[in-house]
Lab assay of single mutants.
Amino acid sequence: MDVFMKGLSKAKEGVVAAAEKTKQGVAEAAGKTKEGVLYVGSKTKEGVVHGVATVAEKTKEQVTNVGGAVVTGVTAVAQKTVEGAGSIAAATGFVKKDQLGKNEEGAPQEGILEDMPVDPDNEAYEMPSEEGYQDYEPEA
């Protein structure tokens, strides 16, 4: 019985440690998101679009440190934060509304985080759909 109880105690310690790591990862992701939003706020009209992409990228980098179902929630929060940063930029006159959601080359930025393969159960990952990809044929 002692062996059984000791095993359960060790398992509990492992769960607590994993929860603490997840909590730490979420806190880091939130900190990076805040950094990115402050970065966007300090940019001029020309830099705002690039700044919004930076927020998304920093958040995406930190999301990889967070495991399990938390990833889905962090990704949703990050996307809403990026959308909010863009709205703030438009409201303050840093950028025109028609410039939001495009990178410096004018290509749409939507789907940055949505296409990231995420499995809350950590069982399997699927690649994003290939609808947006084109076949590449090298020139002879």
Rank of each mutant, 00 (worst) to 15 (best):
A27E: 03
G7E: 06
L38R: 10
K23A: 08
G86T: 06
V118T: 03
Q99Y: 12
E57S: 03
E123Q: 15
A69V: 08
I112N: 14
V63P: 02
S129M: 06
E105G: 08
V95A: 09
K102D: 15
A19M: 06
E131W: 15
G84W: 03
M1S: 01
A90F: 13
Q79K: 13
A29D: 00
Q109C: 12
F4Q: 00
V95R: 15
V49L: 15
T72N: 09
A27V: 04
T33Y: 05
E130R: 11
P138W: 09
P117R: 04
K80L: 13
T22F: 13
K43E: 01
V55M: 12
E83P: 03
D98Y: 10
V95W: 10
V40M: 02
G68D: 03
G36M: 07
K12Y: 11
T59P: 01
A69S: 13
V40T: 01
M1K: 00
I88V: 03
K102E: 13
D121V: 11
P138L: 03
V37M: 07
K58F: 10
V55F: 13
Q109R: 03
P128L: 12
G84L: 10
M116V: 01
E131L: 05
Q62R: 13
K58S: 06
S9M: 09
E105V: 05
V77A: 14
P138F: 10
P117N: 06
G93L: 02
E123I: 14
V37Y: 05
G41L: 02
I112V: 15
A19N: 00
V15W: 14
K96G: 10
N122D: 05
T33G: 08
F94M: 02
E83V: 09
A29T: 08
E57W: 08
T54L: 08
A17H: 04
G106E: 11
S42C: 11
K45C: 14
Q134V: 03
Y133G: 13
G86F: 10
N65Q: 02
G93K: 14
G51E: 02
T22V: 13
E35R: 08
A78M: 07
G25T: 14
G67S: 06
E137H: 11
D115T: 12
Q62D: 02
G7W: 14
G25H: 03
V63L: 15
F94G: 13
T92P: 07
V55A: 07
E139R: 14
D119W: 07
G36S: 13
H50N: 06
Y39M: 09
F4W: 10
V48A: 09
G51Y: 10
Q62G: 04
V71D: 10
G68N: 02
V3C: 04
A17P: 00
K80W: 14
S129D: 13
Y136M: 05
G68T: 06
K102L: 02
T81D: 04
V77P: 04
Q79N: 09
P138T: 08
K58I: 13
A53G: 06
A91E: 09
G14C: 03
Q109H: 14
N65S: 06
V82P: 03
S9I: 14
V48S: 01
T72L: 06
E105Q: 14
Q99K: 02
E104K: 10
P128A: 09
S9E: 09
T59H: 02
Q134A: 12
I112P: 07
S9T: 05
Y125N: 10
Y39Q: 07
G93T: 09
G68K: 15
Q79D: 12
D119C: 10
A53Y: 14
T75K: 08
A69F: 13
A53R: 12
S129P: 09
V15M: 04
A140Q: 15
V82Q: 12
E46F: 12
V118R: 14
G51H: 10
V15D: 00
G67V: 14
V26M: 05
E130P: 13
V118Q: 02
V26G: 01
E139Y: 08
A124M: 02
K21D: 00
A140M: 09
K23C: 05
A17C: 10
Q134F: 11
A90Y: 15
E46A: 02
Y125D: 06
G47F: 08
T64Y: 12
D121K: 07
G25K: 11
T81W: 04
V26D: 00
E131M: 01
V82F: 06
F94N: 15
E104T: 07
G14P: 00
E104A: 06
P120L: 04
E131R: 10
Y39L: 06
A91T: 08
Y136E: 02
A11K: 00
A76M: 10
T22K: 00
G51L: 11
P117T: 12
V74S: 02
K80Q: 04
V48E: 00
E114L: 13
P120H: 06
T72E: 06
D119K: 03
Y39N: 14
K43I: 15
T72Y: 06
A140R: 12
K23H: 13
G31M: 14
K23R: 12
A29L: 08
N65T: 11
E46G: 04
V48L: 12
K21P: 00
G84I: 08
A89P: 07
N65K: 05
P138K: 07
A11D: 00
Q109I: 11
D121R: 03
T59R: 02
A90K: 02
A19F: 08
P108W: 07
P117K: 14
S42M: 10
A69N: 06
M5S: 04
P108C: 08
V16T: 15
L113Q: 08
K34H: 13
G84S: 14
A27W: 09
K6P: 00
A69M: 06
T75G: 07
K21N: 05
A107C: 05
G93D: 06
V49S: 05
A124W: 08
G84H: 10
V82C: 12
K34Y: 12
V77E: 07
P117A: 10
E57F: 09
D121M: 07
G93R: 05
G106C: 12
N65M: 09
E104D: 13
A29H: 04
G86W: 09
A91Q: 06
A29S: 06
G7P: 02
L100S: 04
E57Y: 06
A107V: 08
T64H: 09
G101R: 12
G132H: 12
E46M: 12
V118L: 10
L38T: 14
K34V: 10
A69E: 06
G111M: 02
L38K: 08
T64Q: 08
V66S: 05
E57G: 03
E57D: 10
M127N: 13
E105M: 15
V3M: 13
K80I: 11
Q134K: 13
A56L: 10
Q134E: 01
S42I: 07
T59S: 06
Y125I: 15
G7S: 04
Q134H: 06
A85H: 11
A19P: 00
V3S: 12
L113M: 07
G73T: 08
G31R: 02
S87A: 10
E46S: 08
K10G: 01
K12C: 15
Q24M: 06
K10Q: 10
A89E: 08
E114Q: 07
V37I: 12
Y136H: 09
G41P: 00
E130F: 09
T75H: 13
E13K: 01
G41Q: 12
P117V: 07
D119N: 08
K102R: 05
V71S: 05
A91V: 10
T33Q: 01
E137K: 04
K96P: 10
G73Y: 05
Q109E: 14
K60C: 11
A78E: 01
Q24N: 02
K60L: 14
G84P: 02
S129V: 05
K97G: 07
L38F: 10
A76Q: 01
V63E: 01
E114K: 12
L100T: 04
K32C: 01
G101L: 14
V55L: 04
Y39W: 13
D2G: 00
Q62F: 03
T92W: 08
K60I: 08
Q99S: 12
D119V: 05
T75L: 11
P128I: 09
A29N: 00
P138D: 05
S87N: 06
A69D: 01
V16Y: 13
G86D: 10
H50S: 13
G31K: 06
A78T: 12
T72G: 05
Y39D: 01
P117E: 02
M1C: 00
E139D: 13
E35P: 01
V74Q: 04
G86Y: 08
A56D: 00
Y133W: 07
K97R: 07
V3Y: 07
S129E: 13
